[in-house]
Lab assay of single mutants.
Amino acid sequence: KVMEIKLIKGPKGLGFSIAGGVGNQHIPGDNSIYVTKIIEGGAAHKDGRLQIGDKILAVNSVGLEDVMHEDAVAALKNTYDVVYLKVAKP
Rank of each mutant, 00 (worst) to 15 (best):
R49P: 01
K86P: 00
V35R: 00
V22A: 08
M68F: 10
K37S: 15
H69R: 11
I18G: 01
L14H: 05
D81R: 10
I33T: 03
A74K: 11
E4T: 12
H69N: 12
K9D: 04
N78R: 12
A74T: 11
L57D: 03
K46Q: 12
V2F: 15
K86E: 11
Y34S: 03
T36D: 15
G21Y: 02
V73K: 12
A19Y: 05
M3L: 09
D54C: 07
A88R: 08
L50G: 00
V82A: 11
L76A: 02
D81Q: 15
P28L: 09
I27K: 13
V35E: 00
K1N: 03
P90S: 12
Q51P: 00
T79K: 12
S61Q: 10
D81H: 13
S17K: 13
V67L: 10
D47Q: 10
K55Q: 11
I5Y: 09
V87C: 08
K1Q: 03
G20W: 02
V59Y: 03
V59S: 03
G10H: 08
N31S: 08
K86C: 06
V83A: 12
Y34L: 04
S32Y: 09
N78A: 12
K37Y: 11
D81N: 12
V67H: 06
L50T: 02
R49S: 14
K6D: 08
G21D: 02
E70W: 07
V67Y: 14
P90V: 11
K89N: 08
V22R: 07
A43W: 03
L64K: 02
I56R: 00
I56E: 01
G23L: 08
G29T: 09
K89S: 11
I8Q: 12
K12N: 06
G53S: 05
A74H: 13
L85K: 00
F16Q: 00
G29H: 13
N78G: 14
R49L: 10
A44N: 01
H45N: 13
D81V: 06
Q51L: 11
F16K: 01
G13H: 04
Y80C: 10
A58M: 10
D30F: 04
N78V: 10
I27M: 14
G42V: 01
A19W: 04
N24K: 12
I27R: 12
R49E: 08
S32C: 15
R49Q: 15
K55Y: 03
N78C: 14
S17N: 15
G48Q: 09
S17L: 11
I27E: 09
I56W: 00
A75L: 08
G10L: 05
A43K: 04
K89M: 07
N78I: 07
G20I: 01
T79W: 04
M3H: 06
